[in-house]
Design a protein around this nucleic acid. Sequence first.
DNA 1: TTAAAGGGTACTGATTTGGTCCGGATTGCC
DNA 2: GGCAATCCGGACCAAATCAGTACCCTTTAA
Lengths: 155, 155
Amino acid sequence: MIRLSKLTDYAVVVMTAMIQGDGGPHTAISLAERTGLPAPTVSKILKLLARDGLMASHRGATGGYRLARAPEAINVAQIIAAIDGPIALTDCVEGAAGACGVESLCPRRGNWDRVNRAVRGALESVSLADMARPSFPDPVLPKAAPALSATADAI
Amino acid sequence: MIRLSKLTDYAVVVMTAMIQGDGGPHTAISLAERTGLPAPTVSKILKLLARDGLMASHRGATGGYRLARAPEAINVAQIIAAIDGPIALTDCVEGAAGACGVESLCPRRGNWDRVNRAVRGALESVSLADMARPSFPDPVLPKAAPALSATADAI
DNA sequence: TTAAAGGGTACTGATTTGGTCCGGATTGCC
DNA sequence: GGCAATCCGGACCAAATCAGTACCCTTTAA
């Protein structure tokens, strides 16, 4: 499976929890309590998100975090980039010559880039607001197959 | 970054090498020599691909592997599925209740599924033939500046 | 019958990741 | 204006996962 770091999953949980709260700043502790995640982990996630400008942090006694933008203006690709770094499927694009071994086959690098772009576009099309919206009854999903999500995941 | 296993990358290299050879069966050894990859690793990859029906294996003294289908009929999603298993970004869809912690936030699970479908569609749209085709207008930049590729990878 | 080649299993090492801790900075309160 | 409480920031450490390797068995053509 394509592994998306667990931290990224947690990040969506934390950000969703912030949307559901009031507009005031949220402390790492309060978010940890509400999500059930360990406090240091939440703190780490918030730090990464703030570094990439997705969060606005305020220090001091009455400090805390709050979303830098509206949930509709934040997409999944940005969250993944903040936690896991740039979205790329292979490290062949890193520029490391030794990793490839045979350069004659390396032109496929351009094709990997095309795949990366496609995946990135798919991730950018989903906003944080979409993730927060329950939408569980599947009213809008086109082909859905709701209860069979496990089956749907298999290729 | 979204980590795609290195084995999958190697699988594309090996399959590309098979296309470039003649129609006859390829042994794991010969493919290892041509790609520069370690022989046991190539053997492991070929075994996985054969198990999923992407390769046709022939045992015995003059045996070897050959593509089960035309390169146009094999897409990247199938290769990933053969090596890494089903394509899913999070293990929240696995059905493990303990992993989520708070069930009230779990409705986002349905949204992750939508993201998974989008990514899967992007991967299915690229065939092995596409990956083998150079399609590299700029053959110059074998190992160019790492800074360039890094910029291209950034969102 | 022999040799060559795929198929399977188990083990080891390394890389990545998740989790934890401590120091520095800021602000409200006395 | 000083103090103390609170919170952010970076660094460190342990565990899990994964890539890679090696060995042995089965199968099949020569």
